[in-house]
Simulated assay, not measured.
Amino acid sequence: MKRLVCALLGLTLCMGVLASCAQGGPSGGGSSSGAGAPPDGSGGSREGAVAVCRVIDEDDGTLLLAKQDGGSGDVYRLDASGLPVTLEGESFSADEIESGMIVEVCYGGDIMESFPAQLGGVTSINARSDGFDDLAELYLEVLEDLWEVDGGLNENITKLGVDLSGTRLSGAEQSAVAWAFGEEHGLAPIQGTYEELLEQGYITGEPLEGSDAKYYQWTDGCLFSIREKEDTASFNLPAAKEGEDPSLKDYHVGGTVTFDAQKWRSGTGAYFFSDCTSVRSTSGEWSDYQVGSEAIS
């Protein structure tokens, strides 16, 4: 997937390139964050560190990773081409790494402070056969679908708000999805809820004539959000294709997610996907989501 990256993103990525020693070990001038510090807190690097991450996005061997149970800053970019790759210790191709997989990245210990961060001195990658979950990829697809509908709402925006705090994604996964979404459209994402963006001054309110109410809008930006509802046990599945088993034997009982998604620019400029539903298979893969209804404001 080709991405257009704006000047701001380009500057950020350049910092990553300059700091990157992922293939040949960390440089003397590189800085490191907590995961690269030794247990004694001396600030030096550790040898043989392992980062356990979920693959959020994959593009021609370049991986966008979210550290398992990590915070918003634990997002890494890694070029897997040319690295030894295994699946549970057996030979595996980097081309076969998919979004949703759990991977163990062996590296020198330093983490270069760019965003996404760079793991210094990467020596190998081991993909795991357990723990697959591509919910992040599903939500990235939802954001892209929202971008396409009623395109005038996000036309010519210079700021991109993303709120995934109402989902089960970890902090690192939320940041990685927001970054991938922004990168696709040449914008640096701003994470935050409507209330947080209002408090920070991105969203502003103008008094309505003859009323105490205000008209709220984001003049140069648009907020994309996904919020999960309580899980449901079943819903109307699409009809089985020819040759497919129409039964639910391949699905978890209760392995569904129901959510609302919207993009918002003003009190009179918003688009909604309501009661969207997806089912998770026993392998951890989420199905194409169904939209219950759509609305425009």
Rank of each mutant, 00 (worst) to 15 (best):
E173Q: 15
E173Y: 01
E173G: 08
Q174S: 04
S175H: 10
V177M: 10
W179R: 08
W179Y: 15
A180G: 05
E184C: 01
E184K: 08
H185L: 00
H185N: 03
G186H: 03
G186W: 04
G186S: 04
L187Y: 05
A188N: 02
P189M: 09
I190W: 11
I190G: 06
I190Q: 13
I190D: 10
Q191L: 15
E196T: 12
L197Y: 06
Q200P: 02
Y202W: 09
I203S: 11
I203G: 00
T204V: 11
T204M: 09
T204W: 03
T204C: 01
G205T: 07
E206L: 12
E206S: 14
E206H: 08
L208G: 00
S211I: 04
S211M: 11
S211G: 09
A213Q: 08
A213R: 09
K214D: 03
Y215D: 07
Y215W: 07
Q217D: 10
Q217A: 15
W218P: 00
T219D: 15
G221S: 14
C222M: 11
L223K: 13
F224D: 04
I226M: 08
I226G: 02
I226E: 09
E228D: 14
E230L: 12
E230S: 14
E230H: 04
E230Q: 14
A233H: 11
S234R: 15
S234Q: 14
F235A: 13
F235Q: 00
N236R: 13
N236F: 01
L237V: 10
A239H: 08
K241L: 06
K241A: 11
E242Q: 11
G243M: 04
G243Q: 05
G243A: 02
E244P: 01
D245E: 05
P246W: 06
L248T: 08
K249D: 05
K249Y: 02
D250R: 06
Y251P: 01
V253F: 12
G254Q: 10
G254T: 11
G254F: 06
